[in-house]
Computed example of a mutant assay.
Amino acid sequence: MSTTETPVTETPVTETPVTETPVTETVVHVRDLRMTYGSTEVLRGVDLDIHRGEIFALLGPNGAGKTTTVEILEGFRRRSSGDVHVLGTDPVRGGDAWRGRLGLVLQSWRDHARWRVGELLGHFAAYYPDPRDPAALLDLVGLTAQADQQVNRLSGGQRRRLDVALGIVGRPELLFLDEPTTGFDPEARYDFHALVEKLARDEGVTVLLTTHDLVEAERLADRIAVLVKGRIRVCGTPAELARQAAARAEVRWTAGDGTPRRERTDDPSRLVWELHRDTGGPIADLEVRRPTLEDTYLHMVNTENREDSAA
């Protein structure tokens, strides 16, 4: 009697390729940043990370510590304590090469009034090892027609665009914008926003924006941090901030008898579904208003003030 062995067939093992998750580079890294003036503690343990290529907005009421924070990051002010690295360097030890990687657009300038626009930009470009071409930069910021015009004859919006040109002529990796559109008319603000978005999206410039214009922050910023009384109260995308603040949406509609109605709710989708179910048809003048950044911001500031008063 013979035994027939059935050959064993090995199933080849297919290895699943491992996809590496891209690591987001941190351009600004801050931990437990503190700043004290005499007996007044202005910054009380700030933690912050800003990633390459993002537009990051720092919001807060007057006196919250925004200017102090930014000046420490720029290397203009020495901190009391904490760990701070900007572009991999402690700003306290940053030299000329490090400063050349930064771009600064301050809230207002009152110098260079008699310089011609093109000449001034060319003069600044000469200080950098690999500057942008001044003529191409004027085209980028929309000032080619003003190249031979004196700075003091520019409009407010044009002057702001020149400020940005001066701030980016050295090809900075990190651009600081301090209240950039104060006093702008709507058209100038729109043009300026488009320019900032172009720098970040097309050229990979990281932007740190400080502003009191909440609509501006909501439109431009990938992420927003709210600084209140020396601490970061919350940090995230505008949508994340709204959720963390527990701000409620408002649903508006007109009842069957013609009466305008409104109701605040944490779940507007459910409320709208219930209205459809109860009425059995379309709802007149239905409108859902979700929390804005302004709602979120005011909620946080007011909560902080109430907590301080209770303490």
Rank of each mutant, 00 (worst) to 15 (best):
I55K: 01
K198E: 14
V215S: 15
H212P: 03
T292C: 10
H193K: 11
V272E: 08
P180E: 09
S81T: 14
L286H: 12
C235G: 00
P91F: 04
R78F: 07
N62T: 11
P91A: 08
R289Q: 13
R77P: 03
V301E: 03
W253M: 11
G142R: 07
A165T: 09
R270N: 08
D278N: 10
T24S: 13
G170L: 02
V42F: 04
T303I: 05
P17S: 12
N305G: 13
A310E: 10
L73C: 04
T6R: 15
V234P: 00
S2N: 11
T303H: 13
P22C: 10
R277E: 14
R243G: 06
P22N: 11
G122A: 14
V141Q: 03
T21I: 14
D295W: 04
S80F: 09
I50D: 00
S309A: 13
V141F: 07
R52D: 00
N62L: 10
V164R: 02
V70E: 01
A136H: 12
R270P: 01
D49K: 02
R252H: 14
W273K: 11
D222P: 02
Y128E: 10
Q158L: 10
V18L: 11
R101W: 04
A165C: 12
A245T: 15
D83V: 12
L120S: 13
G94Y: 02
H212K: 08
D185I: 09
L48T: 00
E41N: 11
T182R: 07
L227I: 07
